[in-house]
């Protein structure tokens, strides 16, 4: 069973337990959150060779993540206006860039409901990228299409991009996802604290 299914099963199981029991789990949630953030930090700290890869790819490797950051935040801003959601949550959800397993728990530390929205919205971004990337690149440059996947282009949506966009943009997609993966854990808490 893939991790995505296990994640969905965990979420549904947790919601059922929360709905049907009143058992107190104390601060397990916070402990798990800090443990996960620590592990993500270890992963970022031990990665290597990014500077060299960036040099090979040129300015496109930096411009695409910047476009994704600005565009996602504009999208989050417009969505929060349309739905009447506070800007804090709208931008926080958008700053996940598709990284649902990080965004959901981070937002849930402030609001369980927006934690679930953050989780589902970013999961939906991943699913929509898998479905629509192959369609979108028939009309737009395949390199530009990478921005759809946000942070997921370094792992879950990378095979789709490689298969339909071609192996020559795989490295670009990976670097794009890597940069956003390094930024999201800092940007989401910053937004939640300052708005």
């Amino acid at each position: 069973m893939s991790l995505l299914y296990l994640v969905l099963v965990s979420l549904v199981l947790g919601m059922l337990v929360g709905k049907t029991t009143s058992f107190d789990f104390g601060n397990f949630y916070e402990l798990m959150l800090y443990l996960l953030i620590f592990i993500i930090g270890v992963d970022i700290g031990k990665s290597k060779g990014l500077r060299e890869e960036l040099r090979k790819l040129g300015k496109m490797a930096l411009l695409l993540p910047v476009a994704t950051i600005i565009g996602s935040l504009i999208g989050g801003f417009l969505a929060s206006m349309l739905l009447g959601v506070s800007l804090k949550w709208g931008l926080g959800i958008a700053a996940g860039f598709g990284w649902y397993s990080l965004t959901g728990p981070l937002l849930a530390a402030y609001s369980p409901v927006y934690g679930v929205v953050g989780f589902l919205a970013n999961l939906t971004r991943e699913i929509l990228t898998i479905i629509f990337y192959p369609v979108a690149i028939k009309r737009i440059p395949k390199e530009v299409g990478i921005v759809m996947g946000g942070a997921t282009t370094m792992d879950t949506t990378l095979p789709i991009i490689a298969k339909f966009g071609g192996t020559e943009i795989t490295l670009l997609a990976f670097v794009h996802g890597f940069i956003l993966t390094a930024i999201a854990p800092f940007l989401i808490p910053l937004i939640l604290q300052f708005f």
Partner: peptide, 11 residues
Amino acid sequence: LLIFFMGIEAG
């Protein structure tokens, strides 16, 4: 585990 506990909070 985190998603499970998040589900409990949301539930």
